[in-house]
């Protein structure tokens, strides 16, 4: 039989029924077994031959994985298996975490988002991961189940490099938790792809600001995607020190540009990326300033 495209290589599909069973299996097969949820990164990498796992462990059905809950006093808890369409459609996410919905909406296409998850996007640890910026500015916490039980990791300390995280063999992310954003917070995600929608980011800029007791009256955070080994969080202290002006925002955009040394690749040159970091940071910050009631 002739197939136009390679199929998936051989592996065993495993569906554990408890977190303990899943963690133990993964820990007993380091380098051979991989947890997966939507598979939208996993299947592509396995087809390419980049990943050669013997076992794919489906963790979607495990307890709590499909819960999406908002508790006003605590925040939003997104079970690891909640797909992006469900997240985007949630009225509570729209109301309290619009930046997260906006960022998730830029991921691929509707039918792919039926599979793609926030947990998978984070665990995949791509510098281009579109939902990571929102997670970093919201100061998300990652709930992990490992062989030694449950623990919580800060997203801000989660990434070790492209595709590398603090997760150890046996660790399963069970949920991503977003604390309540500061009162009056506003955000903006700008993604530059080769086409207007549905492509990976050549550069992604998340800007986030909220009223605070500073000289400018605000605090701002920026996250840059696709221009450093891991998504880069920048605390824009400059924008707290004196009253905001378009010139000060320009200066902040230069700070962003100078904090990264992007690389040349098939989707854009280093120089193009640098200039786009500057322009997009300026645009995103200006937009947030406007939303804050400039």
């Amino acid at each position: 039989m002739i197939t136009a495209h390679p199929g998936l290589p051989e592996f065993d599909y495993i569906r554990p029924t408890t977190l303990e069973e899943a963690s133990n299996f993964l820990a007993q097969h380091p380098g051979e077994a991989r947890a997966f949820i939507g598979g939208t990164d996993t299947f592509v990498r396995m087809r390419d031959g980049a990943w050669q796992d013997k076992y794919l462990v489906d963790v979607k059905g495990l307890p709590g994985m499909n819960d999406l809950t908002f508790i006003p006093a605590v925040g939003l808890r997104v079970g690891a298996a909640v797909n992006m369409n469900r997240l985007i459609a949630s009225p509570e996410v729209k109301e309290h975490y619009p930046l997260l919905a906006e960022a998730a909406h830029t991921v691929a296409s509707y039918q792919l988002r039926t599979r793609a998850t926030i947990a998978g996007n984070i665990c995949n640890a791509s510098p281009a991961g579109d939902t990571i910026g929102a997670g970093l500015v919201y100061d998300a916490k990652i709930h992990v189940h490992g062989v030694e039980g449950d623990r919580v990791e800060a997203l801000r300390a989660f990434f070790k490099g492209p595709g590398k995280t603090v997760l150890k063999p046996g660790d399963i992310v069970t949920a991503v938790e977003y604390p309540r954003p500061p009162q009056g917070a506003q955000g903006k995600y700008i993604k530059l792809g080769r086409n207007a929608i549905g492509d990976l980011a050549i550069v992604g800029v998340t800007a986030f600001g909220y009223p605070d007791r500073t000289s400018s009256g605000y605090r701002f955070l920026v996250v840059l995607a696709s221009v450093a080994p891991t998504p880069l969080l920048i605390d824009m202290t400059l924008l707290s020190e004196k009253p905001l002006t378009p010139e000060l925002i320009d200066e902040a955009a230069h700070v962003a540009m100078n904090s990264v040394k992007p690389i040349d690749d098939v989707r854009g040159s280093a120089r193009y990326r640098s200039l786009m970091v500057r322009n997009m940071t300026r645009n995103a910050l200006t937009e947030v300033w406007k939303k804050l009631g400039r």
């Binding site: 136009a4 495209h5 939507g38 598979g39 939208t40 299947f43 691929a108």
Partner: peptide, 28 residues
Amino acid sequence: NGCAAGECGACTVLWNGEPVNSCMVLAV
């Protein structure tokens, strides 16, 4: 089957009422 990689959408079907790339779901 247009790409077997989630890109082209030629494999889209309704799965429990929601559209999905059938090349991105295991039969099992």
